[in-house]
């Protein structure tokens, strides 16, 4: 289990991370979200021992995360880096050897991984001759080939096309099945929603959201209403508790002040019987993200 307790870190007068506190169990995936500069990478770097927290502690399986545990770690940095002149095989071998794997073992594994991630390159091709997507997959293989127990992925999906995104998603799910604790950052809320067991949102270094994805959404109540009926925009706006109405042809996307307003609109809309659509939902993660990011700092 990875445990971060009351972690804080300042650079000069800027508080990069402020009292971050969460736990991540084996076989669990945590999505770390937040705007650029919210403190995601600093949090990762503290877990990785690159920088020391000013306050708080980090533990891995109830002990400090030290160099002796590096072999259990898989880390994909935000900015990808490979040696351009190396071959795919040598590159993977180098990184995997640094994680304590044996050469022969790595050689055996490489073809499996290349085909699993559908890398369109031979093991003997040079990195510089690969497309960006393929190079990124090679980097991922190098991150995961040693079956790490703790995986830290800094924006793993950025720059991947939808096909590769689903390949990577499958890869992450497999790791989860094998019992790895996975923490990753992302700007795509759809990914976060589909992959994560829990999420943490940082704003200016502080945790503003934390918990299982569904719970976080539910905590905002069913304040989103998707409606198709005979009602007009004006009629809808006249209902007390309706904050905003967006219209797309006959469809309305209505933001409510609270869940109860939905019942009032349902009664109005169904006064004459059948309507094709009434769908009351909690806000999407993306909407919550925008909402939280836009809030003034507490």
């Amino acid at each position: 289990m990875l445990s971060l307790q009351h972690l804080s870190k300042s650079f000069g007068t800027m508080k990069a991370v402020d009292d971050v506190d969460f736990e991540l169990h084996h076989g669990e995936i945590l999505g770390l979200i937040g705007q650029n500069g919210a403190g995601k990478t600093t949090t990762f770097r503290m877990i990785l021992n690159f920088i020391e927290p000013d306050q708080g502690t980090i533990s891995w399986n109830d002990a400090p995360f030290t160099q002796s545990k590096y072999d259990q770690l898989g880390y994909l940095p935000e900015e990808r880096g490979l040696f351009p002149k190396m071959t795919v095989e040598n590159q993977i071998i180098y990184f995997a050897e640094l994680r304590g794997m044996k050469r022969a073992e790595i050689r055996q594994e490489i073809p499996k991984w290349l085909s699993r991630f559908e890398v369109k390159a031979k093991a003997t091709d040079k990195i510089k001759d690969l497309s960006k997507g393929n190079a990124q997959k090679v980097q991922l293989i190098a991150t995961l080939i040693h079956h790490p127990k703790l995986v830290i992925l800094d924006e793993p999906f950025s720059g991947l096309d939808p096909v590769n995104v689903s390949l990577l998603r499958d890869g992450i799910m497999d790791l989860k099945k094998q019992g790895a604790a996975i923490i990753y950052s992302d700007h795509n809320m759809d990914n976060v929603e589909q992959v994560s067991d829990q999420l943490v949102m940082l704003r200016s270094g502080k945790m503003v959201l934390h918990g299982p994805v569904a719970e976080v959404r539910q905590s905002f109540g069913r304040i989103k209403l998707y409606l198709e009926s005979a009602l007009t925009k004006e009629q809808l706006l006249a209902v007390p508790g309706v904050i905003a109405v967006a219209q797309q042809q006959r469809h309305f996307e209505i933001t409510l002040a609270d869940e109860a307003v939905g019942r009032r609109i349902f009664d109005l809309a169904t006064a004459n019987g059948y309507i094709p659509e009434f769908n009351q939902q909690p806000p999407t993660l993306e909407e919550i993200f925008k909402l939280k990011a836009g809030e003034p700092n507490a």
Binding site: Y70, R99, T143
Partner: peptide, 16 residues
């Protein structure tokens, strides 16, 4: 170049 390409981060998360 290892630092510039961020390879350093991967290396230093593998070896002291």
């Amino acid at each position: 170049s290892e630092k510039g390409t961020r390879i350093m981060e991967i290396i230093l998360s593998s070896v002291d």
